[in-house]
Structures are given as structure tokens and as C-alpha cells.
């Protein structure tokens, strides 16, 4: 498969999306199964019933450090959040791959376009949540 072939761009991007989706789905399935198992054998009724007024329903990891800590103990919540992060990473990887694919086609205008999109996307995803002026 030559990267300069326009057909291969569709194939590579399609594969990036498909593998990203399958990987994240597998991780979320694992997390959901563990969660179901935990609830099924839990003696605590509060865990079994969903109470919309109880916000949040329980603690779950929202930072990278709490996520890592949760994964280390095999917490179902943390595994699901990891799967969600993999899902988030899928469109980002798709943009990243397209920068290289357009470079292989020597399509300079689109290398600039996709590289700009990637920069804006990463800035928006990773930086703005921590800048107070953006409500972070």
C-alpha cells in the first residue's frame, strides 16, 4: 500500500477510526462487566439503586492522577473512563494521521490545514479546561 495513493488515505483513516472504536469499546465493555459484577454481589443497596437526586452517584476519576490510581486498583469506573478517553483520542489520531497522509501526497495546502486543525484541537481539548478565562 503506497501512502501516495489517494485510495490509501481513505483506507488508513478508516482503519484508524475502526481500531480506535474497537479498542475503546473493548475497554468500556470490560469496565461495565466489572461494574455489573460488583453491583450484583454488593450488599449495599445504595450502590444497586440509581438515585438521580444523589449527585454525583459516586466518586469517579476525573483527573489523570486519580484515573491512574483507579486503574492500579482495577476500579470499574476508572476502566470505563479510560475507554472513554480512548474514544476521545480516536478523532484526534485521525487528524494526526491525515497530516502525515497529506504530506505523503505532497499536498502542501492540506498539510497546513490539517496541522492547524490538530493544533487548535489539542489546544481546545487539553489547554482550555485549565485556563480560568475559559471557565476552567
Amino acid at each position: 500500500m503506497s501512502l501516495g495513493n489517494p485510495d490509501s488515505m481513505n483506507n488508513v483513516i478508516s482503519k484508524v477510526l475502526r481500531y480506535g472504536v474497537l479498542l475503546s469499546a473493548a475497554v468500556i465493555v470490560l469496565g461495565a462487566a466489572l461494574l455489573a459484577a460488583r453491583d450484583a454481589f454488593s450488599p449495599s443497596a445504595s450502590l444497586l439503586h440509581y438515585d438521580p437526586n444523589q449527585i454525583p452517584h459516586g466518586p469517579f476519576p476525573v483527573t489523570f492522577s486519580s484515573l491512574t490510581a483507579g486503574l492500579a486498583t482495577g476500579s470499574p469506573d476508572a476502566i470505563i473512563e479510560l475507554g472513554v478517553l480512548l474514544l476521545l483520542a480516536t478523532p484526534v489520531s485521525r487528524v494526526l494521521f491525515s497530516v502525515f497522509l497529506f504530506a505523503a501526497e505532497h499536498n502542501r495546502a492540506y498539510v497546513y490545514i490539517t496541522a492547524t486543525v490538530l493544533t487548535l484541537l489539542l489546544f481546545s481539548m487539553l489547554v482550555t479546561p485549565y485556563i480560568p478565562v475559559f471557565g476552567g
Binding site: 454525583p56 452517584h57 469517579f60 476521545l88 478523532p91 482550555t128 479546561p129 475559559f134
Partner: peptide, 28 residues
């Protein structure tokens, strides 16, 4: 839409709006 949503997803994740109990069945 995946890229658009990913661009604004970070802030919702950090805020703790991505609840695993709800998001797992939604995503799957």
C-alpha cells in the same frame, strides 16, 4: 462532529460530567 465534540470534551471530563454508569451504556 467527532473532532468538534472532542475539542470541547476536555472541559466536561475535568468538570466530572462524564459519569461512567451513564456513559458506558451510551458509548456502547
Amino acid at each position: 462532529i467527532g473532532v468538534t465534540a472532542a475539542a470541547s470534551a476536555g472541559i466536561y471530563f475535568v468538570r466530572g460530567d462524564v459519569d461512567p454508569i451513564i456513559v458506558a451504556p451510551v458509548a456502547l
